[in-house]
Simulated assay, not measured.
Amino acid sequence: MSPRVSFVIPTKNRPEGVRRAVTSVLAALPEDGEVIVVDDASDPPATHALREVTDPRMILYVNPGPHGPSAARNFGVRQTQAPVLMFLDDDDLLVEDYCLRVISRIDSLPDDCTFGFSASYHLEPDGSWTEVQSISPAGVLGDETPLKYRQAGLGMGCWITRAAFDAVGGLDESIDVNEDTEFSVRLAASGHRCYCDQTPGVILIHDPVRSASDQSSITKAAGARARFRGFEYILLKHQDFLKGHGAFRRKMFTRVVKYRVRAGSVAGWFRFCAQHRPVSDVVLYIAPGALWLGLSKLLRRKP
């Protein structure tokens, strides 16, 4: 019997985290669901951490490469034929009723509402949970909703129909950070609407309460250079679509400048700006960006 829903959990060097993540999903999964764990070059292999998990609904695969969060997720998706895909990071937990909430809701959604995300709980150092609402309004979100509210973080209770995932070509393996932003922009550009569930679907476990044996967040570990290159990549790849989303584009440019300042990198800024149209918009970005980058460079040189 083919699974109705498949969770894809990529993992690397988080033995305690992935064990807890898988356990939380199995407790919430219907009998016709499955958990695809993708070992993305863990050392020691993830099979060590999961050796006591005997539930046949969990299947562990070793990603032969290419590696990275997007490539590992794409590899995991290729291992299943489930019509509904859900994602969970290997350092987070699933709220027990979330999977069934998603499955029961999908059939009532418009045909073009093909993906969604949820609010979350944050695990605090004292063991308590803090509920954190999504910045997005609840319900079906389409063109009438600003693009910044249609961003589905892959670790934020993200689900998507298999048909939609395949239609847009899966995740872009060219970038290791900001990949969920690129994916959400691509889905919006292709006419897909999303659903925001303001009842938490995941429990996020951040560095202060993560097991000491587990690797830190990939996004936090990524250098400022990788961060600004990711945002520049998205702005260039989707610049035709983003012309109609000025507020979102300005926010992205601001992030480029922010992380360029942190990286102390001026090289390539003018070339990057020159690739954008219309020219009137570029002038708004290039001058203040150059000023901030120049000042940061001077401050770094002060004894």
Rank of each mutant, 00 (worst) to 15 (best):
G264Y: 00
R262L: 02
F115N: 15
R14I: 15
S134L: 14
C99Q: 06
Q151F: 13
F75I: 11
L293H: 01
D90T: 01
L123I: 03
P303M: 05
V102A: 04
D281Q: 15
H276C: 06
E144A: 09
K258V: 03
R20N: 05
H276P: 08
H67G: 08
R150Q: 10
L109Y: 05
V37D: 06
T145E: 07
A82T: 04
A164L: 12
G191K: 05
G191A: 08
A163C: 07
P208F: 12
C273Y: 11
F248H: 08
T23K: 13
L236Y: 09
P137F: 03
T114N: 11
G169A: 04
D97W: 00
S134W: 11
H48Q: 09
V140F: 04
Q79N: 07
A152Y: 05
K258W: 05
R57C: 14
K258M: 02
I218R: 15
V283T: 12
R105Q: 02
D172Q: 14
L94D: 00
L100D: 07
L291Y: 12
S136G: 00
L293V: 09
A226K: 12
L93C: 02
L299C: 14
S296W: 03
R262Y: 05
G127K: 15
I135H: 08
V53G: 11
I106D: 12
R210Y: 02
T54A: 07
C273N: 12
Q239E: 12
V177L: 04
S128G: 03
K302Q: 15
A27M: 13
F7G: 04
I160F: 10
